[in-house]
Nucleic acid binder design. Structure first.
Lengths: 102, 102
DNA sequence: CCGTCATATGCCTGTCAAGGAATACAAGCC
DNA sequence: GGCTTGTATTCCTTGACAGGCATATGACGG
């Protein structure tokens, strides 16, 4: 959980991993196939994701099955909160404007 | 708009700039004072933010006044959408569980 | 135990971004 | 037109990854 969530998400490959894990949990090998990248590279990204809390893994026989944990993403969502209020306010204003125009 | 939004947000200083601009638009000098960083460093971050669409600037006399544009943040918000549905689903499930327990 | 499959780790190299110092540019003022 | 103020740009150095290859670790089957 040491590294900043945004820094973790800054890497496109890691977002691809998350996008894939969103659909179903996967073994490292599955991800290697899906991403077309070397196994060490994938394992390293998984390590970063794991240490930042984005994924958890369980051992199943000789494989490690990775699975999303949404908690860090919720933190990002909360960071967005105040900004979301900004554009919500603008949309409201636009709406009022359009209403007054009709 | 060339650089990836997440890469832009990965830099803590840039998030600090956005957090400050969220409260009020500011000149470069204001930001330099607020961040305690060299003026060139701030200007460079502003350039990155500008090129990625996070801020716009207008010229006022000899100053440049920077202001937030929330569009790229809305894009981030949309990227979060599917994940948000994940944890929303979990919360719903938890709620149903608690309801069934009462 | 030993070989094998699945994954993790170390080492190396190349790339890229951040920050400081110096400098260039641009707009106002006298 | 020089001078000052505010901001952008350039050059340089340094540090942080990302990715590949080789190798270590770990779990299973015979």
């Amino acid at each position: 959980m040491s590294v900043d969530a945004f820094a973790v998400l800054a890497e496109p490959t890691r977002r691809r991993i998350l996008d894939r894990l969103r659909r179903s949990e996967s073994s490292v090998g599955d991800l290697v196939d899906a991403l077309g990248m070397s196994q060490p590279a994938v394992s390293k990204h998984l390590k970063v994701l794991r240490e930042a809390g984005f994924v958890t893994c369980r051992t199943a026989a000789q494989q490690r099955i990775y699975r999303i944990d949404t908690r860090p993403l919720r933190a990002v969502d909360e960071w967005l909160g105040p900004y979301r209020r900004m554009w919500a306010a603008h949309l409201d204003a636009l709406e009022r404007h359009l209403d007054s125009q009709e």
